[in-house]
Design a protein around this nucleic acid. Structure first.
Lengths: 249, 249
DNA sequence: TGTGTTAGTGTAGTTGTTACAACTATTTCT
DNA sequence: AGAAATAGTTGTAACAACTACACTAACACA
């Protein structure tokens, strides 16, 4: 890495943290590396960006090559560029996260196919991943938990028809706290962002729940009028207790 | 841009949106370009990242070379990489914003010196800047207005001793809405994040205000205990009116 | 001493948040 | 056919937070 033209002896890649939600669990799609460096470790899907390709395009390409999915939620999060992050040279990477409905999902018959798996996010974060992918995963997970509080992106992870309980479980997984059923329903329904489909679940061994659909048009209407989506319920009383000692000296 | 090794025929730069606050106005530091491309236009300070330099280091370097300041708030925001964003080749840029206290500020006697100026942010956003710097500035400004709602970063823009009115004016500039004096004071003081210095302003032609200092240690204590900083007051009644037509059909 | 200017303060009404438990609809098992 | 199991659905009261709003205090200067 000496000489005048070193500025142009570097490359950039995109890495994509693909989240899905299944069986009450938040999952992330990982690929097992078949070659060095980091052969045998799990890694985030990613690729070098082509010379004539925009960054977002590259991120969509990685996603589509792997999952066959095109129209998904995708967001740039952060760029990682430590000098030594890639063993083979200076490669900075732009990290994205995307949200897919596992119901839509089919692995493409790409060469990787056998080495691609959904992993529970909590477990994946504790495992040793290739490159600096632990940091990238954690950063993207934090970005997701933050985003989900202020934008209704959670719906991107659910099938088109869902029950209020499924929605609540999703939020509980994302926010990592339990929510009160009555308060959650009250709040969500009061936003009038859900369409009541007048359909019931089928094939469940208990009272079937009503099915709902997210009303995207309504959301955009409301957003344009200054509406702000927020899901919280953060047990203020507990906080208050912990803070009392500090604040009231 | 043909041939095998094209992946390594690209470069990356950092661009830094440096915000300051003065005379009730939010400002941004711009450099007038002395050479093509975009000769004569105002641009964000930035530079190519050295081959053995981390991204954050490069952003700090750009800032220090220009202002002489070292310990300032700096945050990565977004990476811009459209294929045609730079007329001379494929150069992606990682955008940062930083917050400086104009009171600390002295321009370094670097070669640029005459061509560096603070610009009102609103006006700068409406002017034609070099490259894609309009988009970068806007993105960073949005990131700042968002960050300022949930973290007490505003204090980075004020001198070490400030009055509550100055603080309020800062927030009004950042949030672009007027705040109620009594409610603002009540809220800020109830957080016990300010140290009352028992000093008064001097040399003002009216009743002098008390001076305060931000209590950083206290903030970190509170943060560790789950405290969340929030400044809003967003005239819910007006919103409600606008929304009523939509929600109550 | 009076005028101009900004600093500083309290309360009541309203809205939003939280905590909490009984009953209902359905399937499965005996 | 009845009982057990499971998850779905619904309201209210206490409390906390937010909003709107107007007068007096302190100082500089003419």
């Amino acid at each position: 890495m000496n000489g005048e033209n070193n500025f142009f002896k570097s490359a950039f890649s995109v890495d994509n943290v693909i989240f899905g939600f299944d069986e009450g669990d938040l999952k992330v799609l990982l690929i097992k590396r078949g070659a060095d460096p980091f052969k045998g470790l799990w890694a985030l899907p990613g690729d070098l960006v082509y010379p004539n390709e925009d960054l977002d395009t590259a991120a969509y390409r990685v996603l589509e090559e792997l999952t066959g999915l095109k129209k998904v939620y995708l967001e740039q999060v952060h760029t990682f560029g430590a000098v030594d992050r890639h063993p083979l040279g200076r490669v900075i990477t732009i990290a994205y996260f995307s949200l897919v409905k596992i119901s839509d999902f089919t692995l493409t018959a790409s060469s990787f196919a056998q080495n691609v798996e959904w992993h529970n996010v909590e477990i994946a974060m504790k495992s040793k991943l290739a490159f600096d992918h632990n940091v990238i995963l954690e950063t993207c997970f934090n970005a997701l938990t933050h985003r989900v509080r202020i934008r209704p992106v959670g719906f991107e992870l659910l099938p088109p028809k869902f029950t209020l309980t499924e929605l609540q479980h999703l939020y509980e997984a994302l926010l990592r706290e339990e929510l009160d059923k009555r308060n959650f329903r009250k709040k969500i329904l009061s936003m009038s962002l859900l369409i009541d489909l007048d359909e019931l679940q089928e094939g469940v061994p208990h009272r079937p729940a009503k099915l709902y659909q997210f009303n995207k048009e309504r959301y955009h209407q409301l957003e344009a009028n200054g509406f702000s989506f927020e899901v919280k319920e953060s047990k203020k009383k507990e906080k208050k207790k912990r803070l009392a000692a500090l604040i009231l000296q």
